[in-house]
């Protein structure tokens, strides 16, 4: 606790300090109290209830940034589903060479989209203008000289999502840290998670699951969003030839998610990445 307070250089006022201590003692996450969280070299804003970027996510996002190296001559497009604070696309836009990356981040929460937008300007990542359906010259996807990020409010589980959001598929890279906590485990989450972070960012099987194409038996295992992502990849041609899908998974979900990608998305090649704590954390898939 003492360490936490001393880490914020601004809280030298006693009253402010004790109020912060009180909030922390209530169980409020440190990151909401301090208002920021380092993510790779970036310092991102954190605001309740948007999911706080996790060190596991930081680790694999950096790993991805080293595995794939777009250049201004070979630019790539990136779609981040359930983008939250925007941490994944913003970090990639920051780490990859300018003019090499055009990123879109989608989230169902207006809070998340606002925060992602604020984070983009905080990190000096250029915001792209929303896609217009007006007829622009043929090469409307020409890459600008800087990396760009476009936060979009949309529900990816709505079947008409790709059209209503005005996306321009296919994408070279699809990333996602979708909600993956099964309902049974949600009950036992620490207060700092359950009482403060958006359940829509955590619950792998949202209560309105009727929208989902897969009311199957594993609808209680927190895998709904992986089915949804697989469907988007297979039905909407969201992923370019040779493109990759990189998703974070919860403890014990990596095999199921690989299965889903093999069977429902037609992604034959998958691998699993471990996090720094030796847990299976990421399923990486490539379309050949």
């Amino acid at each position: 606790m003492k360490e936490a307070i001393s880490q914020n250089p601004k809280c030298n006022v006693n009253a402010e300090l004790s109020s912060m201590v009180a909030r922390r003692a209530q169980g409020e996450p440190l990151q909401y109290i301090l208002g920021t969280q380092p993510f790779g070299p970036l310092s991102l804003l954190t605001r309740q209830p948007v999911l706080i970027p996790r060190p596991e996510t930081e680790d694999w996002a950096i790993r991805l940034s080293q595995l794939i190296r777009p250049t201004p001559n070979r630019p790539l497009s990136l779609l981040d589903l359930c983008t939250g604070s925007g941490c994944i696309p913003l970090l990639l836009c920051h780490l990859w060479p300018q003019g090499s990356t055009r990123a879109v981040g989608v989230d169902i929460s207006q809070d998340a989209i606002n925060l992602a937008r604020d984070n983009a300007s905080r990190c000096h990542i250029q915001l792209a203008s929303p896609p217009s359906d007006s007829t622009t010259p043929s090469d409307s996807v020409a890459f600008p000289r800087k990396n760009t990020f476009l936060p979009l409010l949309a529900n990816i589980r709505d079947p008409s999502f790709v059209l209503t959001a005005g996306l321009r598929p296919p994408f070279d890279i699809i990333t996602s840290n979708p909600p993956y906590i099964p309902y049974s485990e949600y009950q036992n989450l620490p207060v700092s998670v359950k009482e403060y972070e958006d359940p829509r960012a955590l619950l792998g099987d949202p209560p309105d699951n009727s929208i989902s194409d897969h009311p199957s038996d594993d609808a209680r295992h927190g895998l709904s969003f992986y089915h949804c992502i697989a469907a988007l990849v297979s039905k909407h041609n969201l992923l370019a030839q040779g493109g990759v899908v990189v998703v974070e998974v919860g403890a014990g979900q990596s095999n199921d998610v690989q299965q889903i990608f093999h069977q429902e998305a037609g992604l034959k090649y998958t691998e699993v990445w471990k996090d720094p704590w030796e847990k299976d954390r990421v399923v990486f898939a490539r379309r050949y």
Binding site: R54, P190, A201, G250, W277, R281
Partner: peptide
């Protein structure tokens, strides 16, 4: 469990 389950630093 790590990941989304935990937000402690």
């Amino acid at each position: 469990a790590g990941g989304q389950h935990v937000n402690k630093t």
